[in-house]
């Protein structure tokens, strides 16, 4: 067992964990942050995507020990109380989900991606979410939500 301090959604947590635990497992089972989902557990489906220092990563492929000293953001860290983030609003408006299982991971990927590239082309959006599998929507409303969001954020996302 190892004592670590994990900074998640702005809070510092003191934890005693088994060194073999993934970040995903610690988030869900130790911190009760169950918004982050486990799909495949091997980096193929993207359901477990969180931000680590602002970058989208598969939390199933990160040891919790490795995450010490880094800023972790999960889907629970996006909304401000009842006030949803603009990405979440755009998903609702475009019905960019059905069952919702992929949605937290999808939104965290898009958050990390747009923070890096605020004016993406449609191809770039599709490439960015290629690691997030969605079996319901066929991806079209998700891409539409992102395009709409980019435009609403005051950028020229449509014409690049």
């Amino acid at each position: 067992m190892k004592d670590i301090i994990l900074k998640v959604n702005g809070r510092k947590y003191n934890l005693r964990i088994d060194e073999s635990m993934t970040l995903l497992k610690v988030l869900r089972e130790e911190l009760e942050l169950t918004g982050t989902k486990e799909g495949c557990g091997e980096g193929e489906c993207g359901a477990c995507t969180v931000l680590m220092d602002g970058k989208a990563v598969n939390s199933c492929l990160v040891l919790a020990c490795e995450a010490e000293g880094h800023d972790i953001t999960t889907i629970e860290g996006l909304a401000d109380g009842e006030l949803l983030s603009d990405i979440q609003e755009a998903f609702i408006e475009h019905q960019a989900f059905q069952c919702g299982f992929c949605t937290p991971g999808m939104i965290m990927t898009i958050k990390g991606f747009l923070d890096e590239n605020p004016n993406p082309t449609e191809d770039e959006i599709e490439e960015a979410i290629a690691g997030n599998l969605c079996r319901c929507t066929g991806y079209k409303p998700i891409v539409a939500a992102v395009k709409d969001l980019v435009e609403r954020r005051g950028n020229d996302g449509y014409n690049r």
């Binding site: 989208a56 598969n58 290629a130």
Partner: peptide, 9 residues
């Protein structure tokens, strides 16, 4: 190489 998230690690 792989996906966006994997390439971040």
């Amino acid at each position: 190489l792989a996906t966006y998230q994997v390439r971040n690690r």
